[in-house]
């Protein structure tokens, strides 16, 4: 019975407070750009992978080829971040064991 009166009041009072972000926004300033989310970095990673593959004794596995192609396609489609993520996985897979 008492809660019927108290709860709505509490929610009404607390709502505006809680809807504010809990973490303080950093001060507004010209935002810095991360350079590893760009198509250029995507291209640089592709070239780096191509260098590793060409210097390898064996051709890349089907999985590596598939991931590489998918990464490049995503970068070409204007979605550099998922593309770069796949290219990074390719790099990881091409690393010699134990490195």
């Amino acid at each position: 019975m008492v809660l019927c009166f108290v709860l709505p009041w509490a929610f009404a009072m607390a709502g505006p407070l809680i809807s504010a972000p809990a973490t303080a926004e950093p001060p507004e300033e010209p935002a810095l750009t991360v350079t590893t989310d760009t198509a250029e970095y995507c291209k640089a990673l592709s070239q780096r992978i191509a260098g590793i593959i060409s210097g390898a004794a064996e051709p890349p596995s089907e999985e590596v080829s598939h991931l590489l192609a998918e990464g490049q396609r995503l970068c070409d489609d204007g979605r550099p971040r998922p593309g770069i993520a796949r290219l990074r996985r390719v790099l990881l897979m091409l690393r010699p064991p134990g490195e």
Partner: peptide
């Protein structure tokens, strides 16, 4: 963290209401 903070603050509000009641 924001979600967690909101949840905890709401929980505190509810607890405050329960405490008052």
């Amino acid at each position: 963290r924001t979600l967690l903070t909101d949840a905890l603050l709401w929980a505190l509000v509810i607890v405050g209401a329960m405490a008052t009641a």
